[in-house]
């Protein structure tokens, strides 16, 4: 056990416990907040592993953007405040889910632990990997990187189009109602 092992064990315990709480808590908003703790401490785990760029991007994108987006979605869907039993499936399905989750963990652990047994990473020499990552992104991986920008644009337009399409459909099958109501409303507003 080196120092980094001990630090990683502590950070990983926080990550695993908060992840477990975020999938088992009965309060909807607490689930998102425990997810925030889990993803933040996972950024710490990346720092311990010597990938400071990935850790900071994890903080920026996951903790800063995705969890806030989840919290906004919970607000907009009027999530109940306080403990709420209706957010979980029945106990039979939860038991099956727990069995499947444990089976997934056992399968991955039985595959990965022999693969990484005895493997060590020497991180004690003071080197930074960020220039190598930058050169790899804009050298070897430049076409997937450009494709990702297109993917982000498509996701932006797609999210916009999904909400607008259904709104248009709502107005579409009630075609006579918006034709009459706005004229009356505008007349009221002007008069």
């Amino acid at each position: 056990m080196t120092t980094r092992d001990i630090v990683f064990t502590a950070v990983g315990a926080v990550t695993a416990l908060s992840a477990l709480l975020s999938v088992t808590t009965k309060q909807v908003v607490h689930a998102a907040l425990w997810l925030l703790v889990s993803l933040g401490s996972l950024a710490g785990a990346y720092l311990v592993l010597g990938q400071e760029l990935v850790g900071l991007v994890q903080l920026l994108v996951y903790v800063g953007a995705i969890v806030v987006l989840v919290l906004f979605a919970l607000m907009l869907t009027r999530a109940p405040i306080g403990p709420h039993a209706e957010i979980d499936t029945p106990w039979r399905q939860r038991l099956a889910g727990a069995l499947l989750g444990a089976a997934t963990t056992a399968l991955l652990a039985s595959l990965l632990l022999p693969l990484f047994s005895g493997a060590t990473a020497d991180l004690d020499t003071p080197t930074t990997t960020t220039p190598q990552v930058a050169q790899a992104v804009f050298g070897t991986w430049v076409w997937p990187f450009e494709l990702l920008s297109v993917l982000l644009l498509v996701a932006l337009i797609g999210a916009f189009a999904v909400s607008r399409l259904v709104l248009h459909r709502d107005g579409g099958h009630g075609a006579r109602r918006p034709a009459t109501v706005p004229s009356g409303a505008r007349a009221d507003g002007r008069g």
Binding site: A109, L113, L115, G118
Partner: peptide, 15 residues
């Protein structure tokens, strides 16, 4: 130096 079986175990647990 860090033993890489620890993050691998954490990854399996998170999944």
């Amino acid at each position: 130096m860090i033993h890489l079986s620890l993050p691998a175990a954490l990854s399996a647990l998170l999944a």
